[in-house]
């Protein structure tokens, strides 16, 4: 992606050569102050000694990472075993975020396709409609979701009234509720990139495929999907990554019963534990994991582009 941007910009390099440093300054400042500095601070904090009741002592320590990977029993003096607790929490987060991403894709792809195939002047209206609920604060939307799903809520009332079920479905405080919440929180991040990709797609190709006796399913699978794949991947990343670190949905819809990474980290700063280095270490491990996942995605995409082109 970076290489593409650089080569695309080469034609204009000369025009702005003089002012280049100055024009790039805002980008660099933003990058350093808003992205690099906080991450570096987190990295440093994760290697410091924890202070009782929050805060850090400026002494090097590996205790945070040790706590993450080794189980030393309730009192901290058993011989170390592999600690599965936090790995399980990470695994749960990946699973929940993955399910939410899949759900977003299944609903988001047809939605994006629908919008992209409307008359050109109507498309902005549909995009606009998709974004309207997202003008409301995430917290409010998550709480509202809980009200809709609860045992005595409108969804269960409706299902009981039409006779589909006899007793209310228990959705709130389950993993499924968390997935629904994450799906709803991040759906536009799936719809918009796919929409952008499908809109650029040349529908003549589908027609050509049909002329050559490809079924609709084959056309979708072999012609449309490969063409809009970058949009789909971007959408999946944009939903998956924030879902992994989210803590509102697990707290409010999942009943805060099972930590996800986000709530585990939150607890280190806001809860009784007050273990800032451990919170920072867990954040660093999360960041590393996301980075690895993104790199795998990018690799595969590059490979696919090479073999495709």
């Amino acid at each position: 992606m970076a290489a593409g941007a650089a080569s695309g910009g080469s034609a204009t390099t000369d025009t702005y050569k003089e002012a280049r440093t100055w024009l790039l300054l805002p980008a660099w400042v933003t990058l350093c102050i808003l992205i690099l500095a906080p991450v570096l601070m987190m990295l440093v904090y994760s290697f410091l000694t924890k202070e009782f009741r929050g805060g850090v002592i400026w002494e090097f320590s590996l205790a945070a990472y040790d706590q993450f990977f080794f189980d030393r029993g309730l009192f901290g003096d058993d011989p170390p075993k592999i600690e599965w607790t936090y790995i399980a929490i990470f695994w749960r987060s990946i699973w929940q975020a993955g399910a939410a991403t899949l759900l977003s894709l299944v609903i988001g792809f047809p939605t994006a396709y629908f919008i992209a195939t409307r008359a050109e002047n109507m498309r902005p209206v549909w995009v606009f409609l998709i974004t309207i609920p997202y003008w409301v604060n995430l917290l409010i939307r998550t709480v509202s979701m809980k009200f809709l799903l609860r045992d005595q809520g409108p969804l269960n009332d409706f299902l009981i009234n039409i006779g589909l079920i006899d007793s209310p479905l228990h959705i709130v405080n389950t993993n499924f509720a968390v997935q629904l919440g994450l799906f709803y929180s991040y759906l536009p991040f799936m719809v918009l990139p796919i929409y952008a990709a499908v809109e650029r797609y040349n529908f003549n190709l589908s027609e050509a495929a049909a002329d050559l006796y490809a079924s609709k399913w084959t056309t979708l699978r072999r012609i449309l999907l490969p063409a809009v794949k970058p949009g789909v991947i971007a959408g999946c990343i944009l939903v998956f990554v924030p879902s992994m670190g989210s803590f509102l949905a697990p707290d409010l819809l999942g009943g805060a019963k099972n930590f996800m990474i986000g709530s585990l980290i939150e607890e280190q700063f806001k809860g009784n534990a007050g273990n800032w280095p451990f919170g920072a270490a867990a954040s660093m491990i999360l960041l590393t994991m996301v980075l690895i996942i993104l790199m795998i995605f990018a690799r595969q995409q590059a490979k696919a582009e090479k073999s495709g082109g």
Partner: peptide
């Protein structure tokens, strides 16, 4: 005390994991 609080934190994690 700090020692007992460390155990309490561990128990709390066990409860909420």
């Amino acid at each position: 005390s700090q020692e007992v609080q460390a155990v309490y934190d561990q128990i709390w994690t066990n409860v909420k994991k």
